[in-house]
Design a protein around this nucleic acid. Structure first.
Lengths: 196, 196
DNA sequence: CGGCTATACTTAACCTGGTGTAATATGGAT
DNA sequence: ATCCATATTACACCAGGTTAAGTATAGCCG
């Protein structure tokens, strides 16, 4: 960091550690490197509430509709999702998770939760609460300063949190049980990387 | 998160916010989407200390040597790096950053630092210090529980920090001025994604 | 000193996940 | 009934990744 500026190193190190230890490695373990992170998040999104709008889900996950179609093809081929015609709109389709797909998501989350618990055991109860509060404050400040494409999935882990502050900031989230949100993709700013 | 388990949502949201607001968006702005995150980190690594060992740098950045060769080709073509034969070992090569390449890294870091400063202005000085301490503790705990491939770059922002705890945990880091570290790649566990 | 093994990077061929454009089918408004 | 909009998919292409092989060089050993 430049002289006199705030030291951001540990924010980046923490971000990489979370992605690596709580997302990428558990995924490699449960899928034996057969799934990418985008494919996993598609699976989890379907497991959460089903999925009836490929276009909206593509925007939410940060890829184009044709790209999502290919990933859907793969997950169906692997027996993790099923694809049916929609009963509401015959142009659309309906995706549902299979037992096997749900089991993979659950195993991933179990491994991730165990790792998190071990890591947080280094903190006291008060420190954990304070840490979560500070994470929330800084996250929301960062998101406020970011571009409108922030509508994309933040990979929060998919837990349904009533009164989620991010969903409020954005006017909705597909993980919320009361329906999905259309994401604004008119402003593209993100470079893509395999961000483990 | 499962009932009774620790709530990890904000760790993931924070990780995504940091990657998005402090890395991906500044990079999109300075490179007009012409560089991937891996290419940017290669540029920054060379800007830090030069680069004399493509193989070691490839391992550090988490790609294969042929992949790094292609990325080097692109950065040289864009006028951001120069490639020369090594004077020490004619099998190897030496990479150096150009003025233009260094300017791009500096502009990225300026944008990122400004965004970080704005975000952290929501905290008091004591809260910022406590937050950094907690980020460090939890990061190191997560890294201890992760696989040996942790030798890969954590994208800390490239600031040289004397007595860096991560470098200590790993026995070295190419960003440290006293030389690079060979990363152990015998255990592969990571799935790759553009993790902005 | 010559031969042989190891090492460094690059090339070639291939794969995968992404893109944009177009095609096809359907919905809904007029 | 017609026309415009929308949903998903097919197609062609691209870029970044991989593995295997090639070429040049380093260094060790007999």
């Amino acid at each position: 960091m430049r002289t006199g500026a705030v030291d951001g190193r540990w924010l980046h190190i923490f971000a990489a550690s979370v992605r690596q230890a709580l997302e990428a490695e558990p995924l490699a373990e449960v899928s034996r490197r057969g799934l990418t992170v985008t494919q996993f998040h598609l699976l989890r999104l379907v497991a959460s509430n089903g999925l009836d709008r490929v276009g909206a889900a593509a925007r939410f996950l940060g890829v184009s509709p044709p790209a999502l179609t290919k990933n859907i093809d793969k997950l169906v081929r692997l027996g993790l999702l099923t694809r049916r015609a929609s009963t509401v709109d015959r142009r659309a389709l309906a995706l549902r998770v299979t037992r096997r797909g749900r089991a993979l998501v659950d195993r991933h989350d179990d491994i991730s939760a165990a790792r998190l618990e071990r890591a947080l055991s280094a903190l006291t109860r008060d420190e954990t609460e304070e840490f979560t509060r500070l994470l929330q404050v800084v996250s929301l400040e960062l998101l406020k300063n970011a571009d409108t494409r922030q509508g994309e999935c933040l990979r929060c882990g998919g837990d349904i949190a009533p009164n989620c502050a991010v969903a409020h900031l954005r006017g909705g989230c597909p993980y919320q049980p009361d329906g999905s949100v259309e994401v604004d993709r008119t402003v593209r700013t993100e470079t893509t990387i395999q961000d483990a």
